[in-house]
């Protein structure tokens, strides 16, 4: 990869875009689908009767579901200008690093996700490794940090994740 592109990518690190709102509010159908896929029988998530008597007093989403609220829609195509992270990935695609694989995920949970909550998130690229040789091909590890807030402005959680953008051999 050219030095120019590396410098170009570095200018995107640390830049935070506008907050984005999750497409859906936290809702029982999405929670139920998630729990079915994960085979998670925790009654806090799907058992109304139990949830009412729990310390939360209502159904909550599994905390790990947080990252679902950052996902773009399958359709229609997004009209928002691409975020710095998306620009970052596009530039790496153009440079021939087409493969992408998530390698590390960290999440911290501060407040439960209640049914009806509207999640907003901000995120930024925080780090890029030098080019590394991996078993999949040469590539870069790119780390992104997220902050999730609810409609009351409370921070519900944070997440960092690292992807490997690699050249498919």
């Amino acid at each position: 990869m050219s030095q120019q592109l590396v410098e170009d990518l570095k200018t995107l690190i640390g830049q935070e875009g506008e907050p984005r709102e999750a497409l859906d509010e936290v809702c029982k159908p999405m929670i139920r689908h998630w729990c079915a896929a994960m085979q998670d029988g925790n009654p806090l998530y799907t058992n109304e009767e139990y949830a009412k008597t729990s310390r939360y007093g209502n159904i909550i989403a599994p905390p790990t579901m947080m990252l679902t609220y950052t996902m773009p829609p399958l359709w229609p195509p997004k009209e928002d200008p691409p975020h710095h992270f998306e620009q970052f990935l596009e530039k790496l695609d153009k440079a021939g690093y087409l493969g992408i694989l998530v390698t590390n995920v960290s999440q911290k949970y501060y407040k439960p996700l209640f049914v009806g909550d509207r999640i907003t998130f901000t995120y930024k690229v925080t780090d890029m490794s030098p080019e590394k040789k991996t078993s999949l091909g040469a590539g870069y590890f790119v780390t992104t940090s997220f902050i999730f807030t609810n409609q009351k402005g409370e921070t519900v959680g944070t997440q960092s994740f690292t992807v490997l953008k690699y050249s498919i051999g």
Binding site: M38, D40, G41, N42, T64, M65, L67, V105
Partner: peptide, 16 residues
């Protein structure tokens, strides 16, 4: 398997 499923299974394993 995608990362979100690994994450969901992690939560499930621990709270199970």
């Amino acid at each position: 398997m995608n990362n979100a499923t690994i994450c969901g299974l992690s939560g499930r394993y621990l709270t199970d």
